[in-house]
Amino acid sequence: MSRSCTSPTAAKVLSAVPYFAELDSATLKTIAQAAVRRDYKAGQVVFGAGEPCAGLCVVQEGWLKVIKLSADGREQVLRVVGAGETFGEMSVFADKPNPATVVALEPATVWIIQRDAMLRPLDRHPAMARVILQNMAERVLHLVTLVEDLSLRTVEARLARLLLERAAEGTLHRRRWATQAEIAARLGTVLVVLNRALHGLAAEGLIEVERHQIRIVDREGLETRAMLNE
């Protein structure tokens, strides 16, 4: 465990996480004491699907992806987590191995809180339980939507929706790791099909694809595309 005076302490990092926002400082401190800091390099696996995980993981910095891998190595991104977000809830709240693999997309710092330290305060702090439930409910909805997307929507419609959801003021700024292959894995497709969809939407004048960003030109047109299934 390495702590230098320039890096924030566990308590500081945890206080920014919604789960712990309602806790008094004494309880937060107890939880922070049970947290261990880990640093990961880009591409490093935090844990594999089916492996137990040491506890609740809180991201201090860096982006990580939560994925499923097929037998032949194709990947489906379930979600991407960044600073202030958490993963590993499955092993904490259900005492089950994590269903998915977590990989760092860039250098990342993560605090791992042991299971017991997470469970203990729940009895006395119903507000904490409620925030966790809210978060898990969002996660359930996200997966339901992903199932619907994969099963019932075309890749073009999925892409249109991703762009609409992610673009700030009409422009999706691509992070360094957000390669087309990563976007394809997120949409449950392969590079060739994603490229075709991007070109298709661009050719119709709905979006403009540049190196580091994708700009929405015709929001309404894109919304129509996101709703329709051809």
């Binding site: 499955m90 269903p99 898990m136 996660r139 997966l143 339901v144 992903l146 199932v147």
Partner: peptide, 17 residues
């Protein structure tokens, strides 16, 4: 919820992979 997440994750895996 954790069970539900587990089930849905497997369903996503099925559909996608």
């Amino acid at each position: 919820f954790a069970d539900r997440l587990d089930h849905l994750t497997n369903l996503v895996e099925d559909l996608s992979l």
